[in-house]
């Protein structure tokens, strides 16, 4: 029983934004593996140089010894896991059901010494103010200390001080020529960052 692998189907490898690569994930004592479900799924993840991913086999292999943390969080496609490796690599796999949580938690505990499935509780308050923070290669926007979204730094194509207290971040478009359905892609985000010197007065609000 303890060597048995735990498998989940219809799981998307989302290390690279906007690709649609569906497959199976397996957890075992030696590590975690993901395998593309079809040739099309294999092709979708090809050529990006995802660490640990073999273009020929259409497989992602993660060694147990390399795993630092595993997080479970709500994503658009149901639930996802975030696997952080000791070298800083982050693998993202989405498409889990809420009900997969227990078996995932159990598998992580059984197979990987010292690792527990952490709950990454995301903010759904719908607020647009909070704090920015860096988590590994991600710029994370947090509301009341809960992550609201992450921007992978490798997706940033340009940043600008667009005005006083305003920072704009331009994001890379999807790879040209990629066969894709009409997708909605974020191309720019702007933040108001309060000044470090003037924090007491309300800005230009007239009288109270």
């Amino acid at each position: 029983m303890s060597d048995a692998k735990v498998q989940f189907n219809e799981i998307f490898l989302t290390d690279v934004p906007y690709i649609v690569a569906r497959g199976q994930i397996r957890l075992g004592k030696s590590g975690i593996g993901w395998k593309a479900a079809s040739d099309a799924d294999m092709a979708a993840a090809m050529g990006y140089g995802i660490p640990g991913y073999s273009d020929e086999k259409g497989m992602l292999a993660i060694q147990s010894a390399d795993i630092r943390r595993i997080q479970w969080q709500r994503v658009a496609k149901g639930f996802g896991i975030r696997i952080w490796l000791k070298d800083g690599t982050l693998h993202k796999l989405d498409g889990f059901d809420r009900d997969d949580y227990d078996s995932m938690k159990d598998a992580v505990k059984r197979f990987y010494k010292g690792i527990t499935l952490e709950n990454r509780d995301v903010s759904l308050k719908g607020w647009n103010w909070g704090k920015t923070d860096f988590e590994g290669q991600n710029l994370t926007f947090k509301v009341e200390n809960k992550p609201m979204f992450d921007i992978p730094m490798n997706q940033v194509s340009n940043t600008n001080l667009a005005g006083k207290n305003e920072v704009s971040i331009e994001l890379q478009p999807t790879r040209p020529g990629t066969k894709r359905k009409a997708i909605d892609e974020m191309v720019e985000v702007r933040f108001y960052v309060p000044g470090t010197t003037t924090t007491t007065k309300k800005p230009s609000d007239g009288e109270d």
Binding site: W127, E185, M186, E188, V189, R190, Y192, P194, D205
Partner: peptide, 23 residues
């Protein structure tokens, strides 16, 4: 007169997001 959450003067705000699509 806006109703900004001014209780935290150090808050960072998202000022805008741009999303594109060919649909």
């Amino acid at each position: 007169k806006d109703s900004l959450p001014i209780s935290d003067p150090n808050a960072t705000f998202m000022r805008s997001v741009t999303i594109r699509s060919s649909d």
